[in-house]
């Protein structure tokens, strides 16, 4: 009886160790991507880092309930999207907080555009295009923006976006189409 209890305790400890190792591997693998998605959504490095930490904290708490029905990345992305949603909701309530102290306009993301083998003029044009897309993305609705970023920045498949957002594929397609139309329209208007 006692030997059985000791064995159970050892098995539980081993299972916990394995779970901790698995979770650690998940963090290492997906943290940059989650951070990137939150950064492109919030355009605030500090906020993106905070939300990323919250995301993994939440994931850690519920790691035991993760059944692996979707990929860990989709599951994490879903948590990140919900955290981001909560953040925007709070921001809407605190409408008087108009100024973002640490926010970086997405235009500045264009500063990070790899120069490649382009001429200075081409680089300037590319920066302008990136800034324009950024501005268009900023004008999208929250859902359209999420879907757009997941598709065109994170390169997720429609089915993955659907799982991460909790929408069906048709709705995802519709949001994506509208977002794309808006970006296209604004880019076209610019030229």
């Amino acid at each position: 009886m006692a030997a059985g209890t000791a064995l159970e305790a050892m098995t539980m400890a081993t299972a916990q160790e394995i779970a901790a190792e698995e979770f650690s591997a998940v963090v290492t693998k997906h943290r940059p991507q989650i951070f990137r998605f939150l950064l492109s959504s919030t355009r605030d490095v500090d906020l993106a880092e905070t939300l990323t930490q919250e995301c993994f904290l939440k994931a850690h708490r519920h790691w035991g309930s993760f059944r692996g029905e979707s990929s860990a990345m989709t599951w994490l992305m879903r948590i990140a999207i919900n955290l981001q949603k909560d953040h925007w909701r709070n921001r809407r309530l605190q409408f008087w907080r108009k100024t973002r102290t640490n926010a970086v306009e997405l235009d500045e993301a264009s500063d990070w555009l790899p120069s490649g083998e382009r001429s200075v003029e081409q680089q300037l044009l590319a920066r302008e295009r990136v800034a324009q897309v950024g501005k268009s993305v900023e004008g999208l609705s929250e859902r359209q923006r999420t879907v757009f970023l997941l598709r065109y920045v994170e390169e997720l498949e429609l089915s993955e976006i659907a799982r991460a957002t909790g929408l069906n594929e048709g709705t995802v397609k519709a949001h994506l189409s509208r977002a794309l139309a808006r970006v296209r329209g604004e880019l076209g208007g610019k030229r």
Partner: peptide
């Protein structure tokens, strides 16, 4: 044009994120 703009946008966000990470 749109394809290029989206690709550049993605590259810039990736580079920015890597730097900020």
């Amino acid at each position: 044009e749109l394809d290029l703009a989206l690709r550049e946008f993605r590259q810039s966000v990736h580079a920015w994120s890597e730097a900020a990470y």
